[in-house]
């Protein structure tokens, strides 16, 4: 079992963490017209990085959102910070 770091709870089992998506992916502003391409890219496309990936995760035990850097080949967690509105 791999252990992931939570800035609030310390090292915890990987099963307590939930992968929520790419970091930096922003929902298009739907008060303005959004093209099919933009909307489809938002819904379906992923960075799908091989190597150093920046992702959003949730620690389900404390319900905090985390900005996590992870190597998708070695599975190592490279950095973790809390992810709050306006901070990243």
């Amino acid at each position: 079992m791999q252990r992931f770091p939570c800035p609030f709870c310390g090292l915890r089992d990987e099963t307590e963490f939930f992968y929520a998506g790419d970091l930096g992916k922003v929902r298009p502003d739907t008060t303005q017209p959004v093209s099919d391409e933009e909307w489809s890219a938002y819904l379906n496309d992923y960075a799908n990085v091989k190597g150093r990936a920046k992702e959003v995760w949730v620690h389900t035990a404390c319900q905090e959102y985390l900005a996590l850097e992870r190597d998708t080949v070695t599975m190592d967690v490279l950095s973790v910070t809390q992810f709050r509105k306006g901070e990243i």
């Binding site: 079992m1 791999q2 990987e14 099963t15 992968y19 992923y46 799908n48 091989k50 990936a53 998708t72 080949v73 070695t74 599975m75």
Partner: peptide, 13 residues
């Protein structure tokens, strides 16, 4: 597995 990955080896859960 639960996590996106290119590691051609899996995790224990």
């Amino acid at each position: 597995d639960r996590i996106p990955s290119y590691a051609q080896k899996g995790n224990m859960p």
